[in-house]
């Protein structure tokens, strides 16, 4: 334990004296300027929901007529809806049949729809019917129904989880490699090898240093944008898991390289793939099956949900994050031992 603390203090000092780490501070300042002065909080363009009302007397159509739901378009038949989906004009449409007491909904959607989203629509439909029948509604579901659109998140606020994920969390991917390359170039890693301290403490102490720095930046960023009204007790563990995950990944991959100019291509590649989940949170209907397996997904998704709760249970995301951490640590431990702690192995 004292060895870990000793090394942690050393890594913190190295971090504070590393110009790359201060780069992150610079990007945060740029972000704050963008957030407060450049990007407006205008609400993004709404997605249209297509409805086919096959009930007798078109009860749905008439019930919604008086309300302010101009992103709902009624079309006359299922074939037309299916064509719209095939033409990729929309991702999802709803067919209503039956009566108000015996409603029957069919959700028609394209290939890339996550089951979760289908369930959400289902739940919202149920609430809508209850509402129409005069039963009071659980506000959560009705919020979710028009696809986050009853209380939409302003554009600039939406940037916060994105920035937290791609700047604060993923920076450890870059930083862990920078650290390793520096130790390789200075040879200080050789000095570490002739001590009885070993791989685990090497990895964990660096990770803790990255977590410390990441959390400080994240708190700074949130306090200067959203303020105090955030569930920090949920957010901090998610940030820690995310930072650790990308730290482990960065260290694992960096064992194969020796300088930043070779590694930068890896960073670009990983960054591009990791960006895909942004589309999923901006456009929930874009959710190909592989999206949840991109390591940035559970972090981004959870951070967004914690900052702007919509009532989704994050259990699965947390389990995914923990699972990914275990796998990434195991890989990292193996590679650091094999490739960094010994030569000619």
């Amino acid at each position: 334990m004292s060895k870990l603390f000793n090394l942690y203090v050393q890594d913190m000092k190295l971090l504070l004296r590393n110009s790359f780490a201060w780069l992150m501070m610079g990007t945060i300042i740029i972000f704050l300027i963008l957030y407060h002065f450049v990007i407006t909080d205008s609400i993004e363009h709404e997605i249209t929901m297509y409805f086919v009302d096959n009930s007798k007397g078109h009860i749905m159509e008439s019930a919604l007529e008086g309300r302010n739901v101009d992103n709902v378009v009624f079309i006359s038949n299922i074939e037309e809806l299916e064509q719209l989906i095939l033409d990729k004009e929309t991702q999802v449409g709803i067919v209503f049949e039956g009566t108000i007491h015996e409603p029957r909904f069919t959700i028609v959607h394209g290939e890339n729809m996550r089951e979760e989203n289908v369930n959400l629509i289902r739940a919202s439909l149920r609430n809508m019917i209850l509402n129409m029948a005069g039963v009071s509604v659980d506000a959560q579901y009705s919020t979710k129904f028009l696809g986050d659109r009853v209380e939409p998140i302003p554009q600039n606020k939406m940037l916060i989880p994105i920035f937290l994920t791609y700047e604060v969390v993923m920076f450890s991917f870059f930083l862990s490699a920078v650290f390793m390359f520096e130790e390789k170039a200075e040879g200080s890693i050789k000095a570490y090898r002739i001590t009885p301290t070993g791989t685990a403490i090497y990895i964990v102490s660096k990770t803790l240093a990255f977590i410390t720095k990441g959390i400080v930046y994240a708190l700074l960023l949130i306090l200067l944008t959203i303020g105090f009204e955030v569930n920090f007790l949920a957010l901090i563990p998610i940030l820690m898991l995310g930072i650790a995950l990308f730290g482990f990944m960065g260290m694992s991959i960096a064992t194969f390289f020796s300088n930043i100019s070779e590694y930068i291509f890896v960073v670009m590649g990983v960054l591009i793939i990791s960006m895909l989940p942004i589309f999923t949170i901006l456009i929930p209907s874009f959710s190909p099956f592989y999206i949840e397996w991109i390591p940035s997904f559970p972090a981004l998704y959870s951070i967004k949900e914690i900052l702007f709760p919509t009532g989704i249970d994050l259990g699965r995301q947390v389990i995914t994050l923990v699972g990914m951490n275990i796998i990434a640590y195991a890989l990292c431990h193996f590679l650091v031992t094999k490739k960094l702690m010994k030569e000619g192995a």
Partner: peptide, 20 residues
């Protein structure tokens, strides 16, 4: 093979902390 960003004293101090 030293940490060039650390002082001479720091190099020795943190190195010492790695032994049992």
């Amino acid at each position: 093979n030293l940490y060039t960003k650390l002082t001479g004293y720091e190099n020795l101090k943190y190195f010492a902390g790695l032994f049992d």
